[in-house]
Computed example of a mutant assay.
Amino acid sequence: MGLELYLDLLSQPCRAVYIFAKKNDIPFELRIVDLIKGQHLSDAFAQVNPLKKVPALKDGDFTLTESVAILLYLTRKYKVPDYWYPQDLQARARVDEYLAWQHTTLRRSCLRALWHKVMFPVFLGEPVSPQTLAATLAELDVTLQLLEDKFLQNKAFLTGPHISLADLVAITELMHPVGAGCQVFQGRPKLATWRQRVEAAVGEDLFQEAHEVILKAKDFPPADPTIKQKLMPWVLAMIR
């Protein structure tokens, strides 16, 4: 059995892994794990990933979880352009710096924006108070400013003149609040231009393909009560 990737493109780290593999012509079998149906919580998927999270990778008898670990594994196993994860010590350290930072900052802010603005009220039928939503969007705004000031600055990409894993991970995160209807790039010309560069570097068709699901998040039908009951503990733990 060759490389298998367990993904749901609703998930931002899954989108990063999917885009990276497709862009670099890495052959893989796509195994869809439908988050909205709670398939990641099943006993069957727990055999692949006991943490019950996507993405997950199987390469023969070898199994790997966590999106950053998967991306790094793919850069090391396959012959991909150096700019994704540079050999140069300091250039690589800049990518590592961003990947270490984003877990508890940009990812958290973008995830909470999606769920508080759309997924709770539309999909789960749970109201979100105006105060909670305002606080979530204010947190997102602060994080976006940090992304610009600390990482993007006046560079073409987050860590230098070329696209890297940092940019791919960041843009897939930012498309979460975009899918919720947040004007993430409005009033942020540097960030908007950066997005255009990343999309061009990835390829517009691949970028749109990977984000088709999240851009329709506002149109998701309400969850079945049984599914809602199954998902609620997972959702609350995820966005806390």
Rank of each mutant, 00 (worst) to 15 (best):
M1W: 06
M1G: 02
L5E: 15
L7R: 12
L9C: 04
L10I: 13
L10M: 13
P13L: 04
C14H: 04
C14G: 08
V17W: 01
I19R: 04
I19P: 05
A21E: 11
K22E: 02
D25R: 02
E29A: 15
E29Q: 13
I36Y: 14
I36N: 00
G38A: 11
G38D: 06
H40M: 04
A44M: 03
F45P: 10
V48D: 03
K53Y: 05
K53T: 15
P55W: 08
P55C: 03
K58L: 05
G60H: 12
D61S: 07
T63R: 15
L64T: 12
L64A: 10
E66Q: 13
E66Y: 13
V68D: 03
V68K: 03
I70M: 06
I70F: 06
I70H: 09
R76L: 02
Y78F: 11
K79F: 02
P81Y: 06
Y83Q: 12
W84N: 10
Y85P: 02
Q87C: 01
Q87L: 02
D88L: 05
A93N: 15
R94K: 11
V95A: 10
Y98V: 09
Y98M: 09
W101K: 07
W101I: 06
Q102Y: 06
Q102W: 07
T104H: 14
L106F: 05
L111T: 05
L111Y: 00
L114W: 04
H116N: 08
H116Q: 09
V118Q: 09
V118Y: 02
V118K: 08
G125S: 09
Q131G: 03
T132P: 00
A134Y: 15
A135T: 15
A135S: 13
E139F: 05
D141G: 06
D141L: 05
V142P: 00
T143W: 01
T143Q: 04
Q145L: 07
L146W: 07
L147S: 08
E148K: 13
D149P: 01
Q153E: 09
N154A: 12
A156M: 15
A156K: 12
L158A: 09
T159I: 10
P161R: 07
H162N: 10
H162E: 13
I163A: 12
I163S: 05
L165F: 09
L165D: 11
A166N: 05
D167K: 04
L168A: 08
V169M: 15
A170Y: 15
A170M: 08
T172Y: 03
E173S: 02
L174Q: 11
P177S: 15
G179T: 07
A180N: 07
Q183N: 13
F185V: 01
R188L: 03
R188Q: 06
K190T: 11
L191Q: 11
V198Y: 03
E204Y: 00
D205L: 01
Q208W: 10
E209A: 01
A210S: 02
A210T: 06
E212M: 00
L215I: 09
L215N: 14
K216M: 10
K218R: 14
D219T: 14
P221R: 12
P222M: 01
P225F: 14
P225E: 12
T226S: 12
K230H: 12
K230N: 06
M232T: 12
W234Y: 12
A237K: 15
I239W: 07
R240W: 00
